[in-house]
Simulated assay, not measured.
Amino acid sequence: MDKIKATVGIVGAGSMGGAIARGLVASGAMDASDVFACDPSADKLAALAELGIGGFASAEKLVDAGTDVVVLAVKPQVLPEVAGGLSDKLVGRLVVSIAAGVTLSTLADYLDGARVIRVMPNLLIQVLSGATAIAPGQAATPADVELVRGLFSALGCAQVMREDQLDAEGAVVSCGPAYLALFVDTLTRAGIRAGLPAQACREMVEMTMLGVGKALLESGEHPRAYMEKVTSPGGTTAAGLLALEPHLLEGSYGAVDAALARTRELAGA
């Protein structure tokens, strides 16, 4: 992988901000000397410092360091305070927000004059298998978008979308790790019910899930084409799929609809 020729400062070293910082270095996309973070927690900064990532006690000091990209990895409820305190320093700068539900229009109000991009990563960036949606603001340039796409592609995959598609992406992809973990759990319980030992069953189901993901990504096959490879006419897999598919499809539609409805409720709160 070619190194990304930029410097990145991350405001907030919590679960997502810390994962972004660690992932950019662990993936080989960036040298640790080009990644910086700030957080009020000395312990979080110390953990990043072990990787060579520079730390700052305050967002103001980090922004003053003049990184090419500033990532606001803070919770939506504290974003107005954080952005308000930095707005004068971020005029003309490329700013990336991961705050769910905070629109580009609102970010532009908070950060007048900044080149703003919204991203929605999921938690699997922690293992470099994340999925991130990117929605650029009007002031962001094509080069800005490509730089941000490169950063988050190093943590998994990244797709550029319209902002109006982000809620659906969140309901599918951001919630997706929990949906898939639930499927692993329910399939494991079905195996235990059929007589398999619990620990062995869970490990085999988890490895199967991992293998299918890798196989689909590496081959580029459509999932249904892959299903045909392991489904013999009139066989056991065909019988299992016939029983499972209607319920799984209905449940998936229902889960995404429920997540979207809750997203809209929270946005209107």
Rank of each mutant, 00 (worst) to 15 (best):
G137T: 06
G130W: 10
L210A: 14
A83Q: 05
S41W: 04
I10K: 01
I20S: 05
G170V: 04
A114H: 07
I98K: 02
L48I: 08
S97L: 11
G12V: 01
A47C: 01
L260A: 11
S174G: 15
P40A: 14
G66T: 02
A37I: 07
G12A: 12
I98C: 09
E250K: 13
Q159F: 09
D64A: 15
P223M: 05
L180Q: 06
S97I: 09
V102C: 04
K229T: 02
V127Y: 01
T141C: 09
L128G: 07
A259T: 00
A57M: 04
V95E: 09
K229F: 04
A243L: 11
C201A: 14
Q138V: 12
R189N: 12
G268N: 14
R22K: 14
L210M: 09
G9Y: 04
D43F: 07
V78Y: 07
P80H: 06
V172R: 00
K89A: 15
F152Y: 07
M30W: 07
M161S: 03
L196H: 03
G9I: 09
L217Y: 02
C201W: 02
D43I: 13
A259S: 14
F36H: 10
D257Y: 05
E228M: 11
A140D: 10
P40Q: 11
A215L: 15
L72E: 07
Y110M: 15
A255Y: 05
A238G: 08
V127A: 12
D144W: 03
M30G: 07
V74H: 09
V173H: 07
V256I: 13
S58H: 08
E81I: 04
M227K: 00
A190Y: 04
A171H: 03
G130L: 12
V96D: 04
A154I: 06
L166I: 14
G101A: 07
L155G: 03
V11F: 06
L123Q: 12
G55W: 05
R264A: 15
Q77V: 04
E81A: 15
E206Q: 13
S129N: 13
G235I: 11
L62H: 02
R118I: 02
A37L: 10
E81F: 06
R162L: 14
F36L: 14
S87L: 01
D257W: 02
L147W: 00
A13T: 04
T7P: 02
Q138D: 14
E163Y: 08
L151I: 05
A258K: 06
E50V: 10
G195N: 07
I192L: 11
D39N: 15
F152M: 08
G220W: 06
E203I: 09
D257I: 10
D43A: 15
A26G: 05
A13G: 08
V71F: 12
L166Y: 01
P177A: 11
D43G: 05
F56N: 01
K89E: 13
R149Y: 03
T188Q: 08
C201G: 05
T236K: 00
D144S: 07
G17L: 03
L90I: 06
S105H: 07
A243Q: 10
A133S: 13
D39C: 12
L182N: 08
D144H: 04
L45S: 08
A57G: 12
V230E: 04
E146V: 04
I134V: 12
A225K: 10
R115V: 05
A190I: 00
